[in-house]
Each structure stands twice: as C-alpha cells, then as structure tokens.
Amino acid sequence: MSAIWAQGLTKHFDEVRAVDGIDLDIAPGTIFGFLGQNGSGKTTTIRMLTTLLRPTAGSARVDGLDIRDDARAVRRRIGVALQEAGLDDVQTGRELLTLQARLFGMGGSAGRQRVQELLGIVDLEDAADRAIGTYSGGMKRRLDLAAGLVHRPGILFLDEPTTGLDPISREAIWRYVTQLSTDDGITIFLTTQYLEEADRLAHDLAIIDEGRIISRGSPAEMKARIGTDVVTVQVPAADALDRAAEVAGDVSGVERVQIADGSAVVYVPDGARAVARIVLALDDAGIEVGDVAISRPSLDDVFLEATGHHLRVEEPQPAEGGAA
C-alpha cells in the first residue's frame, strides 16, 4: 500500500489553479521531495493532503485513508510542520508539546515522558521552560518539528522546513529528518525550494511548477535523464542571446540549447572537449562571451530543462535571532 496516493488532486482559488491535477504514489518509509519555487503549488498540495484544505477535485489517500471521508483518522496518523512554525509565543516549549500530546490523547506520565524525550531529540531541554517568544528561528523550527512527532506518526509532512534558516540550523534539521527516516522508518513528505536539500535528502522527487508535476524520479535518475554535460555560456549583450543559442546549437555534438538568465545553456556530451568548439564558434560569429562553466547535470538543470527557467529561491527576511 502506498503511504501517500493521489489522483487528479486539484485546488482552484477562484480563477487561479493552484494545484492542477497532480498524481502521487509514495512508498512507505521513503523521503519524498516536492521541489518547486514559491507559488508553484507545494504548500497547497500539503494543505490538502493534511486535511487543512478541501480539494476542488481529485482524490487522495494517506496511510490508506481518504483525506475527505476519514479526515480525523488521517490527522491521527500524520505529523505536520508547516512553513511558518505554527507556535504560540506565550507558552513555553514544554507547555506547547504537553498540550499537543494531550490533544492527541496522550495525557499523564506517558505524555510527559514523550515530551521530555522529544525535547532531548531536538536539543531543547535547556530552553524547555522558557517562553517560545524568546526562541531563535532555528529553535522554533526544531520545536515545531517535535510538535509534529509527539504522537509518533508514521507519516510526516514538512513544508519548507529550512527556509530562512542559517546553515547550521539547516544542517541540524537535515540530520533530524534523515534520522527519522533511517531509524524510525517514517515516511516523509518534504517540500522545498532548495536544490541542495532535495538532492541530499530525497529518495524520490517530484518537481512542481504552476500546479503541475513536470518531472518525477530519484534525483540521480532525473539528472541521468539529461544525459549530457551542461555548458553555460554567459552572453553580456542581451540582444545577442538568441543568435548565440543558434550558433551554439549548430556546433557538432550539441544536443540542445536553452536561454536562461542571460546565458546560453548548452547540453552536450563530453562538455570539456566541446566547450572550446562552442566558444570559438561564438567568437567567429562576433558574439562576445562572458563566463563559461562546465558542469555535470544538476537538479537546477533538470528544473531548467523541464520549465525553461531556473528555480528562483525567495528567502524570507531573516527572523530575529535566526541562529540555531
């Protein structure tokens, strides 16, 4: 049985098709990455799968339960940490986790023990009895993650868990997420706008753009599908870009060329040998060349190939005290 399954899942907000008929089939125990830029439909998808939003059309099952008909049972089996750490600044960390445990029916000593255990796991024992309002951004994310784990869910939804965090806090969250998957066998549905995060954590990945899944597979499979090296040639004169793409496309061995962010992105096997031919051809055509880079295909190249544009990462304003 799939941990998460969806068919034709759709959400419209008036005229806007936020999620436009996506299909999912996620195996138990895997980390599923859902990669896309802001506004692509990641959060709306997660809000439907976690029963916070009713789909406009389509169906979905989480741990075998229908998200419409068995919404409360779904909520018992999932843990969720949304993009904005949903916390109450007036409570202490311990009070928040204790309340969360009680709402999941875990009262008494079992609840207290679980809270203490989680505070240890996310390294918040020392801050447990301080008001959450005094926590840094990284501490809030860790507490939010702990709140999602109070009732030992089999499936965990994480909506951009590291957006806006500094590298040390990000690394800590990655460590917890990997641990949850490998040690506890939890299925993790993780949305992200960070290529590195998707590449590093996800066993299985889907790229979403404008509400539709445009590529699916493991990060390695996706990159292998490109099948070539990527030569990125920056062209300083914007009006010469189309001509540069045309000239580069005519170079022997070049499979295809895309234009993105002031550069011609050339897909060619054995890029190290081809780069000289490409630069010479551009020079012969009188096109000025800026920086040139050769790389193995990255998820950014996968994204570019599928969407025609690079993934744009939007960082929020750093939160006060954003350190771990």
Binding site: T51, L52, A73, L82, E84, G86, L87, D88, L103, F104
Partner: peptide, 16 residues
C-alpha cells in the same frame, strides 16, 4: 494571532 502565526492550523491538524 493564532491564525496569523499558524498555531490555529497546528490545532486544526490534531484529531481534536
């Protein structure tokens, strides 16, 4: 404040 901070969603995500 609960709605804006996302805490209301956290409560809605419990089986309560």
């Amino acid at each position: 404040t609960d709605i804006q901070r996302g805490y209301f969603d956290k409560l809605l995500l419990t089986p309560a």
